[in-house]
Each structure stands twice: as structure tokens, then as C-alpha cells.
């Protein structure tokens, strides 16, 4: 337990001290992007890991929140309505939650591959809506020049404040997911995953548990979507097209569904490859490269990078235990606590 707490403290301090070690590119384009994109992936990991439901519409929900913030804070050419930013954020998050809820209402009638198909259909429908609708979504152009607000003299469009804002939101979302899994609702959701029929025979409305999970995932994706919008400064149909929709799934699978932290690990790997692939290969080969990384992970560690890490830890612990036993035989007396600290 203490070792785990220590690890978390170290990780937290590392994330807080990260800006001291890197330049603005690593701070915003890698750090900030990982945290925002990772939060969208987290909403998917939440659905898959605890509810056993795979949705392809999480980027769409993030897009709903992004478009809402853009519409209410950065109107262009007669499209949009300027509102105070707290109100705009509130509306955006409410819309994202509602979108999650509505998608859930449709999706929970299906299972497995059919959930995937129906959420993909919703994602594509939303993409074409944003492309063809000018009254609300401003069509092909979308919205640009969307700036995060200045709060109490802190300008969140600057690199350092934006990084800390992203870190705070991501940490809150991650903490919320960890907390929810331990609450009665979270246990019921895991019950749905393990055995919906049994849960029904205990007095639970299984469909309602699933729909509420989709709404919670909608809120998480909405928060990630707003960070994503502020990072890019713009949103357009390309932000909710097939590629970003698949990217979320890719990041989640890369990280693995064993643990919610996998969402951020996967998002980090994805973002790093996304940013540096151009140094090695032509831009149009990016999909080939990320595809190969994806294949390698799925082939060698089906439970993603977190699965790989977990197996590595178990292997290391066994190795240490073996070493201790041998040392114990040789020295005649062994102190496992001491040797654990040495590793």
C-alpha cells in the first residue's frame, strides 16, 4: 500500500514539475494534448472496462461540447451567440452529457458489435451534419480563433496555465472515474458487465444503469473535448470525422482497458508518434506507422501497454523473490523487506 502511495506521489510530482523540464512544444503539444485527448479516451475506457460497452461516438460527444463552446464564445460571420464563458461552459457540458445520454438510449438496445455499428453510424451522422449545416455549425469552415478565457488575470491561452488547467481537469476526471467504480452505481455497472441477467434478478434496471454510464462518459468526453478545442483554437467537421473517431479507440486500445490510467498512457504514445513520425516518414505514411504500432501492441500485449507494465512488474517481483530466497540460503538469514527497498 505504501509503495503504491509513493508511486502516485512521485507521478503527481513529476507531472507538476514537468513544465520545469521541457520547452513549450513538449508542454502544450505533447503534455496538454495527451491530457485533453486522454480524457476523451478515458470516457471510452470507462465504458469498456466497467460497463463492457464499446462506443465509437465518444469523439462525437467531445465535438458537441467543443462546438457549443465555440458557438457561444467565438461567433463568426453571424453564426453563434456571445455568452459569458462560465455560462457557455455550463451549456456545453450539459449538451455533452445529454448527447451521451441520447446515444446511450439508442445504444443500450444493442450488444457487442451492434453497439459499435450504431455508435459509428451516429458519429458519421454528426460529421455530415456539421459539414452541411451552416446555421449552427458553420459548415466546412467551422469555428476558428477560439480562445480559452482569462480568469483573474491568468490567461489560459498561455502555455503554462493551459498545461496546469489540462492537468487539473484530467486529474479530476481520472479521480472521478476511480471514485465512481467504488460507489454503488459503479459496482452495479460492473455487475452489468459481468452478468446483466443476474443484476436484473437483484432488482436493478439494467438498461438504466447502462444509459447513466453513457451520460457520465458524455460528461467526461465533453471536458476532454473543450480542452481539445482550446488547444487547437478551432473546430471543424474534420475534428469529428472518421479519423479522430478511430483515434480515440486506437489510444484506448494502445493503453489497454485494464486500468483507467491506460487512457492517458495510450494518448501519450499516440501523441508522441503523431508528432514525431514526420521526422522519419512522409506525412501520408503516418497511418501506416500508427497502424503498425497498433498491430504490434495488439499482437504482443492484447491488454495494451498497461497490461505489458503489469506483467513486467509481476515478472520483476518474482525475480526479486527468487533472488531473496537464494540470498537467504547463502547468508543463512534473510530480510525480504530490506531487499525490496534495494530494488
Amino acid at each position: 500500500m505504501t509503495r503504491r502511495t509513493l508511486l502516485w506521489c512521485a507521478a503527481g510530482m513529476g507531472l507538476i514539475a514537468y513544465p520545469l523540464l521541457v520547452n513549450n512544444f513538449w508542454l502544450v503539444q505533447i503534455g496538454g494534448r495527451t491530457l485533453g485527448f486522454g480524457t476523451i479516451a478515458l470516457s471510452l475506457v470507462f465504458l469498456v472496462a466497467y460497463g463492457g460497452m464499446l462506443s465509437l461516438a465518444q469523439m462525437t460527444v467531445a465535438g458537441v461540447a467543443g462546438y457549443a463552446v465555440a458557438y457561444f464564445t467565438a461567433p463568426v460571420a453571424g453564426v453563434g451567440l456571445l455568452l459569458p464563458w462560465p455560462l457557455a461552459l455550463l451549456i456545453a457540458l450539459a449538451l455533452a452529457t445529454l448527447a451521451g445520454l441520447l446515444i446511450g438510449l439508442l445504444a443500450v438496445r444493442t450488444l457487442g458489435i451492434y453497439t459499435l455499428m450504431i455508435t459509428l453510424a451516429i458519429a458519421m451522422a454528426f460529421y455530415f451534419l456539421t459539414l452541411q449545416n451552416y446555421a449552427i455549425f458553420n459548415g466546412y469552415t467551422g469555428f476558428s480563433n477560439v480562445q480559452p478565457p482569462v480568469v483573474a488575470g491568468v490567461d489560459f491561452s498561455r502555455a503554462l496555465p493551459f498545461y496546469y488547467l489540462s492537468l487539473a481537469i484530467a486529474a479530476a476526471c481520472y479521480g472521478a472515474v476511480r471514485h465512481i467504480t467504488r460507489t454503488p452505481f459503479g459496482l452495479a455497472l460492473q455487475g452489468v458487465r459481468d452478468n446483466p441477467r443476474r443484476l436484473r434478478s437483484l432488482g436493478y434496471d439494467v438498461a438504466r444503469v447502462r444509459v447513466v454510464a453513457f451520460a457520465i462518459a458524455g460528461l467526461l468526453a465533453g471536458l476532454g473535448g473543450i480542452l481539445n478545442l482550446w488547444l487547437n483554437g478551432s473546430i471543424s467537421p474534420a475534428s469529428v470525422g472518421i479519423n479522430p473517431v478511430i483515434d480515440v479507440l486506437m489510444a484506448a486500445v494502445l493503453g489497454g482497458f485494464l486500468h483507467p490510467i491506460g487512457a492517458y498512457v495510450g494518448a501519450l504514445v499516440f501523441t508522441v508518434v503523431d508528432n514525431f513520425a514526420i521526422n522519419f516518414i512522409a506525412r501520408e505514411r503516418f497511418n501506416t506507422l500508427i497502424g503498425l504500432v497498433f498491430l504490434a501492441v495488439v499482437l504482443f500485449s492484447p491488454d495494451g501497454i498497461t497490461g505489458l507494465l503489469r506483467r513486467g512488474r509481476i515478472w520483476l517481483e518474482e525475480k526479486v523473490a527468487r533472488l531473496n530466497r537464494r540470498r537467504g540460503r547463502n547468508a543463512g538469514s534473510s530480510s525480504p523487506m530490506q531487499s525490496r527497498q534495494e530494488t
Binding site: H179, R182, T183
Partner: peptide
């Protein structure tokens, strides 16, 4: 424990609580 908790909570109500931990 969690299996039994779900059964208890299922018939008692407040099945959607997300505020307090189950334990």
C-alpha cells in the same frame, strides 16, 4: 463482498448513488 453488497443495495434502493463509496 461486492456481490453481496449489490444484492443488498438492489432490493433496498439508492442503486444509482455515486456520492459515497460502497464500503
Amino acid at each position: 463482498r461486492e456481490n453481496l453488497f449489490l444484492a443488498e443495495r438492489g432490493v433496498r434502493g439508492r442503486r444509482f448513488s455515486v456520492l459515497a463509496a460502497a464500503r
